[in-house]
Design a protein around this nucleic acid. Sequence first.
DNA 1: CGGCCACTTGAGCGTACTCAAAACGCGTGG
DNA 2: CCACGCGTTTTGAGTACGCTCAAGTGGCCG
Lengths: 249, 249
Amino acid sequence: MGNLAKCELHFLDAEHQGPQSACLQCAFGKLCFPPVLPAFYQMLLPMAGENRLRLKRGQCLFSVGELQTGIFAVKAGFLKTCITLADGQSKVIGFHTMGDAVGMGGLGHGVHTTNAIALNDCEVCVIPLEKFERLLEHNSESVYVRQLLAREVVRIEHHAAEVGALSAKQLVAKFLLEVSARWHDRGYSKNKFVLFMSRKEIGSYLGLTFETVGRTLSYFQTKDWIRIDAKNVLILDLPALRLQLTRPI
Amino acid sequence: MGNLAKCELHFLDAEHQGPQSACLQCAFGKLCFPPVLPAFYQMLLPMAGENRLRLKRGQCLFSVGELQTGIFAVKAGFLKTCITLADGQSKVIGFHTMGDAVGMGGLGHGVHTTNAIALNDCEVCVIPLEKFERLLEHNSESVYVRQLLAREVVRIEHHAAEVGALSAKQLVAKFLLEVSARWHDRGYSKNKFVLFMSRKEIGSYLGLTFETVGRTLSYFQTKDWIRIDAKNVLILDLPALRLQLTRPI
DNA sequence: CGGCCACTTGAGCGTACTCAAAACGCGTGG
DNA sequence: CCACGCGTTTTGAGTACGCTCAAGTGGCCG
């Protein structure tokens, strides 16, 4: 459990209810895993219910090179995953929120391949590796994990292509649409939301500097496509943002 | 090495011996799958031995949206996988050669998520989806597939980060080192090899224009780090290329 | 032979980066 | 309570890297 120790575990005292009911009664309910994976959700979450843990803003869930002890399901809050390049700079490669699985990349060599850091106070379900593998042995649920991984491959492939192909305006527009869609998927407004990451983190994710991200957001505001105040976003013209992606410059 | 460019396939006429022996006697032998996956290799390749497939240069192995009928193991030759972005441009996201598995991304929804196109005449082993899944049901080999997918996630994550972070010189240096390492892994020289992709395809992969790729290669040649003639590469100073990655500009 | 494509090289331009200054929010401690 | 320090954000001015456009070469094939 190595680094988990330094994470100051605060387990929820819902043990007496049994893990399953604890999860099913949870406020996040079926949001916890994407609707396309109902069976996987039903199998996995009850197992995780026993091991819940809380992270404070800035805390590290796991880091590169650590032995992987489990996979994680985000219950509440936001995390970023990042890697360090050969020249020392750190790059954000993904943002994760409730319902997302984190730490799947480590299944390759049994060692974590990214750093996962909490963007704010958050709650994470831990599925210990032994339980996870036992689950997959005895069930055909391994198909779901395969699907989850394959979809992650596709997601990152598109991200890599876009980072190398789109302009700053297109990238920032794409980012806003991505965040909007994720909120929408989870039953919230797609037009009004809060960004939990800094400009610097957005820039790192998109391959831009934080100044460029800020400038582009300001530009969108002058166009009356969005209204942005610090981290609060109000999308006024979603189609206009979408149009950015299909149109050059 | 030069005649590899022509890639005149010399097929083994070992069909009469049964698929398993055909594969084990194959000239590519255990190169066909990475050494870290011996069990998977032994399970998978004999199954594929029955279904071998030849592609001519430019032919499409599968394309986006097609129903996935199987996964593929490259036996000889080179393929690229690419996707089409919202604005219509096509981006290369990977190059594949002997020993690589292609088409795993489709495991997410059962539909191919990339276009796979032969860069030269090549030979591919087909593992029909039913056989593939039956194999995974009856064996613990599904672990290997999971590892394969997880490693693919990691590979693309790093690629995405680099495309968004590195300069043109760094990207091209990284690309040369990548290709060199892949040849080396397969038992060939790491200093002398042939590029099977055009400048345009390299540029698409790295998020650069083909002019910039060409210019950068020429620049490396003026520095006496490499010697390049058309697609023939001779690396003269590998450490210098490596240094590019750790040093800014 | 002509046509086509890949590649190289050059010149000029534009986007995004770099450097810089100032305002702002936020937590800490006097 | 305000002062202070720190990090984030915004905005500006200048720069540089890589893109765009263009011309010219060489290889391949009908």
